[in-house]
Amino acid sequence: MFASRYIMTAALRANLRDQTVLLIAGLFIVLVLISAYLGWSATATVQDVYLKVVEAYAAKGQIAPPNPVPDTPPLGLLRNMATYVALIGALAGLVLGNKTVSGDRKSGVYALLASRPITSSGIALGKILAIIIAITGLLGVAALTNVITFMILPNFSLSADEWFRLAQFYIASDLYVISFGLLGAFFAITSRSEAKSLMIPVTIWLTVTFIIPQLTANVLPMAALNPLKAMAPAPSGAFFVFTQSVLTPISFAEAYRALAATLLDFAPPGFKFQSFISPMLTLMIVNGLLISAVVVAFGKMDASRSAYDD
């Protein structure tokens, strides 16, 4: 366990010095900040306009219609966050997970690590913890930004239940991004080529995010990008009925989107995710499988030929 802690610390330090990781993590944070600013700005504008309307009505001796801002579900303002997490957040996690392992292989240090009195599962544990901590830190900054936004937004005070659901949303987002981090790490361990170690998980990310949701028809093709169109009824037809029943339980991206939509109040009325497994359970199962895969992959890695071919 102590040795794993040292592996974890070194991996985190290396990530902090990796420009690619910093760039993509920075991009995610910038998008979160922009999202928070847009939410604040849009709400403040509506509020200002409403106050002017009230003044105008009052000048005419009329009663103004009710303020629409308090009727808006406050958590729904964060719908863009679900999109950013599914796109740039997942990609950031994937790159971070890949770099956490590929750095050692690329530099050829792995042979020195493997000749130390530490097991391969100890090395794997250190790397996995580093990935989890780095991604949780990244999502933590996003969560803090949202909390501050809600505290300064006029007319948007969250109830205890809403704060709880916001926390659940970030736990789900953390699990979602970590799974891509683990996917990046897995291919960084098992690939002989550094280029392939990144290309394969990126292809999987594209498939999970865009292709499978089209086949299951739980969400329409644009749903991963546009939450407004999400969770539309599935098109009728034998093909979609079949693909929906087969692919929905393993449609990881949709499980996350469904969970996010439910927690953040942007799901259409009466929406129900078409799977016998709950979305949160799907996220947990995927993470559990990927953690096992990373540990096994480290165990099977040939430490004497750990450097990449390219």
Binding site: A3, A10, A14, S107, V109, A111, L112, S115, P117, I118
Partner: peptide, 30 residues
């Protein structure tokens, strides 16, 4: 592994770290 030290043909270390940081990390593992 506790009994051995190993110097590979091409010594690979963390390029972005100082010699001391590399030694500290590998020493901790040992």
């Amino acid at each position: 592994r506790r009994q051995i030290g190993y110097v590979p043909e091409n010594v690979h270390l963390y390029e972005a770290m100082t010699a001391q940081e590399n030694l500290r990390f590998l020493g901790q593992l040992s």
